[in-house]
Simulated scan of single mutants.
Amino acid sequence: MKTADPELMRAINRLSVLDTIRRHGPIARIEISQRTELSTSTVSAITGSLIDDGLILSRHEGDLRNATVRGRPRVMLELNPNATRVVGAKIAATRMTFTVTDFCGDVLSEFSLPVRIERMPIDVIADLVEDGVRSCVMEAGLTLAEIEVVCLSLPGVVEHRTGVVRSSPIFSDENVDFAAVMSPRFGIRTIVESDVHAVTLAHHWFGKARHLEDMVLVSLERTLGLGVLHDNSLFRGAGGLSHNLGDLVLGTSADSVQRLAGLAGESAILGDGPQEGLYAEAIRLGRGMSQVRTLIAAEDDRIIAAAARAGEAVGVTIANIVTLFAPPLVIVVGSSLALGQPFVERLREAYAAAMPPSLADVSELVFDDATEFFWARGAAAVALYELYESPWGTTGPAL
Rank of each mutant, 00 (worst) to 15 (best):
T3S: 12
G265L: 11
L108N: 12
L64V: 15
A140T: 01
T20Y: 11
G132I: 10
V181A: 08
V362A: 06
G239N: 03
M76Y: 01
G225D: 02
A350V: 09
V176C: 03
L229Q: 03
L347H: 00
N13E: 01
R293T: 15
T162P: 00
I27D: 04
E349L: 11
N66M: 08
H243I: 15
E389N: 07
Q275A: 09
H24I: 10
S194W: 04
P184R: 15
L55K: 01
P155A: 14
D300E: 09
A198C: 03
R293P: 02
E139D: 14
A282C: 00
L217E: 08
L337R: 00
V157M: 13
L77G: 08
P26S: 04
P114M: 04
S335Y: 08
E7N: 07
F206H: 06
W392G: 11
M138R: 15
L217P: 00
V192H: 08
I304N: 07
E130W: 04
L142G: 01
G141K: 03
G105S: 01
T40V: 14
S168E: 02
L108D: 06
A310G: 09
I46N: 06
D195M: 01
G288T: 05
E159K: 05
A306D: 08
G251D: 09
L201W: 10
V158I: 15
S256A: 13
R166I: 12
V115G: 05
A4N: 13
G227W: 03
R14M: 07
R236T: 14
V199H: 02
I147K: 11
P397S: 15
R346A: 11
A180Y: 13
G156H: 10
G286W: 02
Q275H: 10
E78Q: 13
M9H: 05
E78T: 13
M1I: 13
D5W: 13
N244M: 10
V366S: 07
G393T: 05
V158A: 12
G286P: 01
H197K: 05
D102A: 13
A145P: 00
T371I: 09
G48M: 15
M1R: 13
L152N: 14
R222E: 12
A380N: 09
I170M: 01
R70Y: 14
G48K: 14
G71P: 01
D368L: 04
V157E: 09
A310E: 06
L229S: 10
F98W: 06
L245N: 09
S242K: 12
G273K: 00
A338P: 00
S44E: 14
A352Y: 06
G237R: 02
N13S: 01
E389F: 04
T84Q: 06
A379G: 07
L142F: 05
A306E: 07
